[in-house]
Design a protein around this nucleic acid. Structure first.
Lengths: 353, 353
DNA sequence: ATTGGCACTCATGGCCAGTGAGTGCTAAAG
DNA sequence: CTTTAGCACTCACTGGCCATGAGTGCCAAT
C-alpha cells in the first residue's frame, strides 16, 4: 500500500518539480519550461531523458504526442506521501477558521460551518457528514403528546446531540403514560449504546409478549412507531463550495459542462456521499487521509481527490469531514486545514458535552 | 401593476407563439420558422411586420441585427399573466410528488424534500426556507442538564417544530431547578406567541428584579442564555438541483462559466436567499407568485425567475418554497407543481400538528 | 392589410497556413 | 556513462478568409 517512488534522487526532484508547476499552472509541463524555472541548471535534453524514464515507470502521462507531461495518479500519491505533514497554517488562516466556529452549539451546526470553511480554504468542495453511528449512546428520551395518536419523541444522545421525530401510533396515549414510558427507558438505559438498547428492547418486547404488561405494551408501541430510530435520520450531510468547481480564475478545476453537471448531481446525492466517505475514512485512523483516484469508485469523479478525516469528539466518531477537490490542488495547505478543523471539532465539542 | 399586453389579437397570438417556441428551442425565433411552425398560414413578411411592432412596444428584443427575436421580461410577464392557472399535473407527476413526502415528520424534513422535488419537476433550482416567524407559538420547553453550567434547551412550538440549543450558563443548575423553571414556563405560557412570550418574560424579569425570587432568577438566567431564542436559528434553507443550471440537454439554461459560478455562489449564501424570498413572497398572498426580472434585486440572477409561494400550515406561515429557474422554463407546469406542493404541505403537516 | 422580392447583415463553420511548445533521437562533449 | 547540443518532426492553437444560411427591413404589387 506504500506508494511507489521513482528510484533516483534526480528523478524524484524532477517529478516533484513537475507536479508543483503543473499544480500552479494547470498546463502540461515541458522540458524547456522546467529547465528555465528550476534552479538546478539542467538542460532541457537531460530533463527530457528523465521525463521519459518517469513516463515509463508510470508517473507521467502525455495528453498527446507533442505536448508536455501531466502527473499520473501514482505521481500524486508519491507527492502527498512525501509531504512532511509538519506544516502549519498561517496565523491569518487559523484566526479565520477558528472565528468561524464562534458560538456553535451542536455537532450539526459545527459540521455545517465546517463544510463552508473547508470550501473557503481549499479549492474544492467542503463536505461534512454526521453519522449517528451505532456507537451513539442514549442520554435520555422525552415523549410529548402532540395530538390524538401523534407523539413527539426527542432523543438526546450522550454527546448532547438531539434528534426528534413525530410518531403516529396505533392508539392514543396520555401524557402520563408517555412520561412513565420515558422514565422507564431513562432509568434503565441511560448510557447504553443505541443499537444495544434497541436490540435489548426488542428482546424484552418479544419475551414479555404473553403477559400483558401495560408499560411494556406502551414501550413496544413507541418502539415500533420508531421512537428510538430517531437517531437514524441523523445522517446530515453538508456540502458547500460547489462554486469552486467552476472557478474560472485561480487554479480551479477545468471541467466541461457535461462533467460539471455530473459532479453537481453526484454531490447532491447525499446517500452516495455518505457511502463514499465511510468507504474511505476508517473510523480508527487518526490522521488525514488523501484518496487519489476517486474515479475507481465514482466514475463521475475522475480527476478528483478526497482529503478527509473522521470527526471525533473525545474518541467517539461523530461523522467525517472532507474536501473533494481537483487533483490539481494545494495538498499541503488543504491537509493542514482539514486536520486543524478536526482538532478544533474535538476541542469545541468536548467543551460542550 | 397589471402587465402590459399587446393591443391586437394577432399580435398577442404571435407573441405567445414566439415565446412558446423560444422556450422550446432556446434560440432566437425568426419570421420564417414561425410561419412554418404556426398553423395559421401567415407569410413570413406579415409576421415580420407584427414582430417589428412588438419590438417597438417593448415585447421583443434582438440579440443582434440579423438574428431572430427573443422575448423581453415584459413579454414573459404578459405570458404568465395569460396562463389560466386551471391546469392540473399529470397523474404520474402527482403520484411522484406525493409519494416523495411519504413519512415526513416535521416541517424541516418536508421542506428539504420539497427543494429536491421541485428541482426534479422543474428545470430550475428548488429552494425552500423555514422561517421561525414571530407568529410561532410555544407548546412547551424542556431543559436538560448536560454538564456543569451546560444546559440543553428544547423548544417545541405549536406547529410541532422542535428546536434545541445548548446553553452555557453563568452558574450551575440542578435538574430539579431546571424542571421547575420549565414547568413554570409551560404552565403559564403554553400557546403564547414566541415574541410576546419573550417580551413578557423580559418584562417580568425587569419588574421582579429587586425581590430575589429564586424561580425568576433561574428563568432570567435561562432566558439570557438564549433558551427561548432557540427558535431563532431556525432559518433552515434548502437548495437543491443546482445541476439544472448546467443542464446540457433539454431546455436548460445556457450560462457561461463566469455566470454559472456567480449563480452557484449566490445560491449558497443562505441569508441572501432568505431575504430574496421574503422580499418577494408576501405572507398574505395565497397564490403562486412569479417574479420576472430578478436581476433588479440580484444582478447575478439575470435571466432568472422566481416562482414561489408562502408555505402555510393551517393559515400560519412556516416558510416559503420556490423554484429559481431560467426565464426559459415551462411556467405552467412549474406553477402548478409549486402550488400542488404548497397544498400538500398544508395537508400533511396539519395532520401532524 | 398581406405578400413576394430583393439587397443587406451577421453569426457560424470549414479550410488553410503560420506559430510555437514540445518530443525523440543521434552524435558530440565532459 | 552522463550530459548536452542539434535537428527533424508532431500537433494543438490562432487568425484570416470565404461560403452558407437564417434573418431583417423595405418597397412595390396584389
Amino acid at each position: 500500500m506504500v506508494p511507489l517512488a521513482p528510484k533516483g534522487l534526480r528523478e524524484r526532484e524532477i517529478l516533484t518539480a513537475i507536479i508543483d508547476t503543473y499544480i500552479a499552472t494547470g498546463e502540461p509541463v515541458g522540458s524547456r519550461t522546467l529547465s528555465r524555472t528550476n534552479k538546478n541548471g539542467l538542460s532541457p535534453a537531460t530533463i527530457r531523458n528523465v521525463m521519459s524514464d518517469l513516463a515509463d515507470s508510470g508517473f507521467l502521462d502525455q495528453p498527446h504526442t507533442s505536448a508536455g507531461r501531466i502527473p499520473t495518479a501514482e505521481a500524486y500519491r508519491y507527492y502527498v506521501a512525501q509531504i512532511t505533514g509538519t506544516a502549519r497554517l498561517s496565523p491569518a488562516d487559523e484566526e479565520m477558521i477558528s472565528s468561524s466556529f464562534q458560538g456553535v452549539g451542536d455537532v450539526d451546526e459545527f459540521l455545517e460551518r465546517t463544510s463552508h470553511v473547508l470550501s473557503l480554504v481549499s479549492s474544492g468542495v467542503g463536505v461534512a457528514v454526521a453519522i449517528g453511528g451505532s456507537k451513539t449512546t442514549l442520554d435520555h428520551v422525552y415523549f410529548s403528546r402532540l395530538s390524538v395518536q401523534k407523539v413527539l419523541a426527542v432523543v438526546v444522545t450522550g454527546a448532547g446531540v438531539v434528534r426528534d421525530r413525530v410518531l403516529r401510533l396505533p392508539r392514543d396515549f396520555s401524557q402520563d403514560e408517555l412520561d412513565t414510558a420515558a422514565r422507564f427507558i431513562n432509568e434503565n438505559f441511560r448510557g447504553w449504546a443505541m443499537d444495544e438498547l434497541k436490540s435489548e428492547i426488542a428482546r424484552r418486547i418479544d419475551q414479555e409478549r404473553s403477559e400483558f404488561d401495560f408499560l411494556m405494551e406502551s414501550i413496544a408501541q413507541l418502539y415500533r412507531g420508531g421512537a428510538l430510530a430517531a437517531d437514524e435520520p441523523s445522517q446530515a450531510v453538508f456540502v458547500e463550495g460547489v462554486a469552486n468547481l467552476v472557478a474560472s480564475e485561480r487554479g480551479g478545476s477545468d471541467l466541461d459542462k457535461a462533467r460539471l453537471g455530473e459532479m453537481l448531481r453526484t454531490l447532491e446525492e447525499k446517500q452516495r456521499l455518505i457511502e463514499l466517505l465511510s468507504a474511505y475514512l476508517d473510523a480508527r485512523q487518526e490522521t488525514v487521509r488523501v484518496v487519489i483516484g476517486l474515479e475507481d469508485t465514482v466514475p463521475q469523479m475522475r480527476n478528483f481527490v478526497l482529503i478527509g478525516v473522521p470527526a471525533r469528539v473525545g474518541g467517539e466518531v461523530m461523522g467525517s469531514l472532507a474536501v473533494i477537490g481537483p487533483t490539481r490542488m494545494d495538498y499541503e495547505h488543504t491537509i493542514t486545514a482539514v486536520s486543524y478543523i478536526a482538532r478544533l471539532f474535538d476541542q469545541v465539542l468536548n467543551e460542550n458535552a
